[in-house]
Structure formats: structure tokens, C-alpha cells
């Protein structure tokens, strides 16, 4: 192994070890520490400066009190469950909204497709925060949506949407829609139209040809899109804190408050560790789907 190759590997490797892996190990360590009213607000139970003795003392005193605390206070498991529920439901809604758009794009005239594609990607480059913020003005009590509906006479009283879970769903569907559209569009665009013609020639109606040919062929795009929405939504913080209300429970928000408001670092760290454990399963499934797709493409 020559020196140049060693440097090439070592620099990014060391960087990621120091700023990704080590910080995570610190979180793990603090999650096993005891809460204390001091600065920093925890008492470490692992003291590596004492070498083996420190490690032995750590094993002797090892307890999962912060994790046990998480199971005792129902705020936490309710927050995990409600994050999973909000993520799952909003993924379904995003799929229902995104699929027709991706389908329409793939069926549009070829000269139009690059423009349509750019229109889907453009919001992705625009600040996430601003896109969420835009909905506050629309959904608030005297907001544009209520003004519009009341001027049409559809409703007599303003609807309360802002600071409810409905607003959170709208926000998630809106901000994550491009992540759903792009992979589905990628699979639909590659589809061979003659397959649909063959199905229709063989007596399939248009609608059943859609369900029997188009949907199965776009399966990998649907799966990829769903994971791309589902995984980041679980730990979402900005949307529930700006659009949600006091009854909106999401674990990203709980972690934030535990850290910044309650200053309980060990519990915040334990919340983070459990959140990662929950995310491992969908992440592995997502990787597998990507790999299968790559193998199918050769």
C-alpha cells in the first residue's frame, strides 16, 4: 500500500470516525449515564481515564435506568407510536397524491418532460423551512384558505386547521412530495408502452391494464418513494413544531424539548438511541430494495 493511497483513504475515514462514529458512541455512553443537576448535566458512569478499573466499575454499575424511564413514562412510547402512525399515514397520502402526478409526467409529450422534471426538482432546492412556513399563512384562522372558502360561502365559520395533526399531514405531504414523485416517475418513464397495447389487444380494459401491468412494473419506484418519505418523517422536527399543536406528539420534537427545555441529556440520548433502533428496520429494507433494483438493471 503506497503512501498516497493511504492518505486518500485515511483523511475521509478519520473525519467520519471523529465526527460521525465517535459522537454517536458518546450519545450511547451518555444514555447510560445518570442524570445530575450540574454542568454538564449528567454523571458519567464510564470513566476511561481509569483504564480497566473504570471499565469494570462501569460494568458493575451498568443499568438502563434512562431506558426504563422511557418505558415508564407513557409520553415516550406514545410519541414513538404516534410518530410511526403519522409517518405511515402521510406516506400513504403522499403516494396517492404523487402517483397520478408521476404517471401524468411519464405520459406527457417527450419534449415536455425535462421541464416537468425541473418543476418537481425546483422545490427541493428551495428552503424546507420556507416551504413549511408558507402553509402557516394559508391554514391559520384568518388565513387564505379560510378567507377563500368563506367568500365562496362553503363554510360560515373559519376552520381550525393550523396547530392540529391535519396541518402536520398537509405539511409532510407537501414537503416530501418530490421524493415520492421522482422514483416513481423514473420507473414509469422506462416502461415499454407496447406492453399496455398488448394487454389491451388481449382484451384487458384500460383500468385493469393499469392495475395488472403499470402498477406491478412501477413497484420498485413505489417502494423507494415510500421509504424516502417514511424514514425522514419519523424523526421530523420542523413540521410538527411549526404546523402541529400541543396535542401533536412526534419523537423528534420530544427529543428537542428534552434536550433544550428540560436539559435532561441522558434521557434525550436514550430517546435518540431507541429512535435509531426503530429506524434500522426500514433502512435495511430500503437498502435491499435499492440493491434488487440495481441488480435488475444489470
Amino acid at each position: 500500500m503506497n503512501a498516497r493511497r493511504l492518505i486518500l483513504i485515511a483523511v475521509p475515514y478519520m473525519w467520519l470516525l471523529a465526527l460521525f462514529l465517535v459522537p454517536f458512541l458518546i450519545v450511547l455512553k451518555i444514555s447510560l449515564s445518570d442524570t445530575a443537576l450540574s454542568i454538564p448535566p449528567y454523571t458519567p458512569t464510564l470513566d476511561l481515564s481509569q483504564g480497566w478499573e473504570g471499565l469494570k466499575a462501569f460494568w458493575a454499575e451498568l443499568d438502563f435506568e434512562n431506558f426504563i424511564f422511557l418505558t415508564e413514562d407513557d409520553l415516550y412510547w406514545k410519541a414513538y407510536l404516534s410518530s410511526l402512525k403519522i409517518a405511515a399515514l402521510s406516506t400513504c397520502i403522499t403516494l396517492l397524491v404523487g402517483y397520478p402526478i408521476a404517471y401524468g409526467m411519464a405520459r406527457a409529450d417527450e419534449s415536455w418532460r425535462p421541464t416537468l422534471l425541473m418543476l418537481v426538482i425546483l422545490p427541493f432546492w428551495t428552503s424546507f423551512l420556507i416551504r413549511v412556513y408558507a402553509w402557516i399563512g394559508i391554514l391559520s384562522g384568518e388565513g387564505y384558505l379560510n378567507q377563500f372558502l368563506m367568500s365562496l360561502g362553503i363554510i360560515g365559520e373559519p376552520l381550525t386547521i393550523l396547530n392540529t395533526n391535519t396541518a402536520v399531514y398537509i405539511g409532510i405531504v407537501y414537503t416530501y412530495l418530490p421524493f415520492m414523485i421522482l422514483p416513481i416517475y423514473a420507473t414509469l418513464e422506462k416502461m415499454d408502452d407496447s406492453l399496455l397495447e398488448a394487454a389491451e389487444d388481449l382484451g384487458c380494459s384500460r383500468i385493469s391494464a393499469f392495475w395488472l401491468v403499470t402498477v406491478p412494473l412501477s413497484k420498485s419506484g413505489i417502494i423507494a418513494g415510500c421509504f424516502l418519505v417514511f424514514i425522514p418523517t419519523i424523526g421530523e422536527f420542523v413540521i410538527p413544531s411549526l404546523l402541529g399543536g400541543s396535542q401533536t406528539l412526534m419523537i423528534g420534537k420530544v427529543l428537542w424539548e428534552e434536550f433544550f427545555s428540560n436539559r435532561d441529556w441522558p434521557v434525550a440520548s436514550a430517546v435518540a438511541v431507541i429512535l435509531l433502533l426503530i429506524l434500522v428496520i426500514p433502512i435495511i429494507l430500503f437498502q435491499r430494495n435499492e440493491q434488487k433494483q440495481r441488480e435488475a438493471e444489470g
Partner: peptide, 23 residues
């Protein structure tokens, strides 16, 4: 190494932020 390249892409921001602050 490849795990450390892909993991931050799916890591919730609250966890990345918290772990770096503690570091």
C-alpha cells in the same frame, strides 16, 4: 467506511445534531 458514508443520509437530523453537540 461505506456504512459511515450512507448512514448520515438517513440519520434523523435531531440525532446528528445532538451527537455532534455532545462531542
Amino acid at each position: 467506511f461505506s456504512g459511515m458514508i450512507y448512514a448520515p443520509l438517513v440519520m434523523p437530523e435531531v440525532i446528528t445534531g445532538l451527537s455532534l453537540l455532545l462531542l
